[in-house]
């Protein structure tokens, strides 16, 4: 992995974390997209078998610490979503734009479902389910723009195909 790619990975993940925790009006809070999960999915699709699952776990642990949730909760959810993406990477890459939007919505919903189930198993009651749908919807809508933006930055700074 070359230096520029590592830098780009670091910057994209840290800005995703920043966006995730950026203060917003209470009214808008449930509509904040799952930036971090989307960025993780993007890099899983791009890097394929160079994608490091250990690093995604580490990032998940950082989220757990920021959020104050049980250590490993978000790490596990991110890990399983990355696994799903890696497993079906070819399918996702071939999919059309509308199909991708739909599938990203489902993936984000699955991510939050995993969190919900894990929290339920640990006996931490989660009372509201509407925010899950709202953020899945906003994540799905933001996905094409996010992937285009990241593609653009990547093509202009990092030559990935030559490195391989």
């Amino acid at each position: 992995m070359n230096f520029r790619l590592a830098l780009l990975l670091f910057l994209s993940f840290s800005s995703a974390i920043a966006l995730q925790f950026l203060p917003v009006l209470p009214l808008l809070a449930p509509w904040v997209p799952q930036w971090l999960t989307l960025v993780a999915i993007y890099w899983a699709l791009v890097l394929d078998d160079h994608f490091s699952l250990s690093w995604i776990c580490f990032i998940g642990l950082c989220i757990d610490v920021m959020n104050g949730s049980v250590l490993g909760l978000h790490a596990l959810a991110l890990l399983w979503i990355s696994f799903l993406v890696l497993k079906n990477a070819r399918h996702f890459r071939r999919a059309g734009r509308m199909q991708q939007i739909l599938e990203m919505g489902l993936l984000i919903l699955a991510y939050q479902f995993i969190l919900w189930v894990l929290q339920g198993v640990m006996g931490q009651a989660v009372l509201q389910w509407k925010p899950y749908l709202m953020s899945s919807l906003s994540s799905a809508i933001i996905w094409p723009w996010l992937s285009l933006l990241l593609d653009d930055i990547r093509f202009s700074y990092v030559r990935l195909k030559d490195d391989r």
Partner: peptide, 19 residues
């Protein structure tokens, strides 16, 4: 990556349990 996911999952579940 399937094996890596499995082993990391076990590690994370252990972490959650310990925490």
């Amino acid at each position: 990556f399937g094996w890596r996911t499995l082993s990391l999952s076990i590690l994370m579940i252990g972490l959650m349990f310990a925490d």
